[in-house]
Design a protein around this nucleic acid. Structure first.
Length: 284
DNA sequence: TGATATGTTATCTT
DNA sequence: CAAGATAACATATC
């Protein structure tokens, strides 16, 4: 579930809570979920939590290493101290249930007794300790984030013109554009009135600019509403800070419902093995 | 029981 | 070789 807005929401919460705390120990309950040499961050104080595309980055004082975290489809981070519980990620019972849960893969314990739980039902996500220098070089080779200045008309056009794939697949291709996943891709295409299956290289200049604006708009809206909690809302109560973007979905998970623009019935199709939602009346 | 699931990547197949 | 399509990862829910 987490796309850029969800990861940004998590990043902001964690940055507010974790800076200055020292990690006492890291308890790895599932080997696949953690890699790298943790001795380089144990006992070090957290300096900053940041984000690049869908990756959370944790920086430490007096350390050559950083910890990077990818939640993939079902990862969630839950921070708990005496008074509060902050969560971000996949909506699952862990948000409000007892911790650690059967999905808890890694636990960080801080010097003040607070804890950070990394839960991940499907175990696709990861936490990695990597060298800062190596990671900085890696990042230079990555595609720009969709909210970076670099993501302008010329950039998007050059990416789209090079591909004959469905435009929705290009939008969610992290090699080309950082941070957009299925939810926001569907909504951005709806906003710009473009059929998700259109060949990327068939878009006109005007459509490309509409699409670029729409992507930026839905991503910023997602951040504003604290991300989205998609389905499974029944699992969340007031203890879990669930996002509210799902209340603003334009087409995502709205198949069979009316398009708010012209009343057309929203259809669900499959593109590249993933679901795509669109209004057949206004998306061409 | 079978289909489906929000992300990424390895492995085919053109 | 490269672009594109598809399977795979591991688990839960409808």
């Amino acid at each position: 579930m987490p796309e850029l807005p969800e990861v940004e929401t998590i990043k902001r919460q964690l940055d507010k809570e974790l800076v200055g705390k020292k990690i006492k120990l890291i308890n790895v309950l599932r080997d696949k979920s953690f890699s790298g040499d943790m001795s380089d961050v144990l006992g070090r104080a957290i300096r900053r939590v940041s984000r690049r595309a869908k990756v959370v980055e944790v920086e430490f004082a007096k350390s050559e290493s950083v910890v990077i975290i990818h939640l993939k489809m079902t990862g969630q981070l839950v921070y708990v101290d005496d008074k509060k519980r902050l969560v971000g990620g996949h909506p699952a019972i862990d948000w409000v249930g007892r911790l650690p849960s059967s999905h808890t893969r890694v636990i960080w314990e801080f010097d003040d007794g607070s804890k950070l739980y990394f839960n991940d039902m499907r175990v696709f996500g990861w936490m990695r300790v990597v060298k800062r220098d190596w990671y900085e070089e890696e990042k230079k080779r990555k595609a720009p984030d969709v909210i970076d200045k670099e993501f302008d008309f010329d950039y998007l056009k050059s990416v789209l013109k090079k591909s004959g794939r469905a435009v929705k697949l290009v939008l969610t291709d992290q090699e080309k554009i950082g941070g957009v996943g299925n939810i926001y891709a569907n909504d951005a295409l709806y906003l710009s009135k473009i059929y998700p299956g259109r060949k990327a290289n068939s878009l006109t200049d005007i459509e490309i600019e509409h699409l670029r604006k729409a992507v930026v708009e839905v991503i910023n809206k997602g951040i504003k509403y604290g991300g989205s909690s998609a389905a499974d809302e029944k699992f969340v109560n007031t203890l879990g800070q669930k996002g509210r973007y799902q209340e603003h979905f334009l087409v995502y998970e709205r198949s069979g419902k009316e398009c708010s623009r012209d009343g057309g019935l929203i259809k669900k199709i499959r593109i590249g093995g993933r679901s795509a939602f669109y209004c057949p009346e206004c998306q061409k």
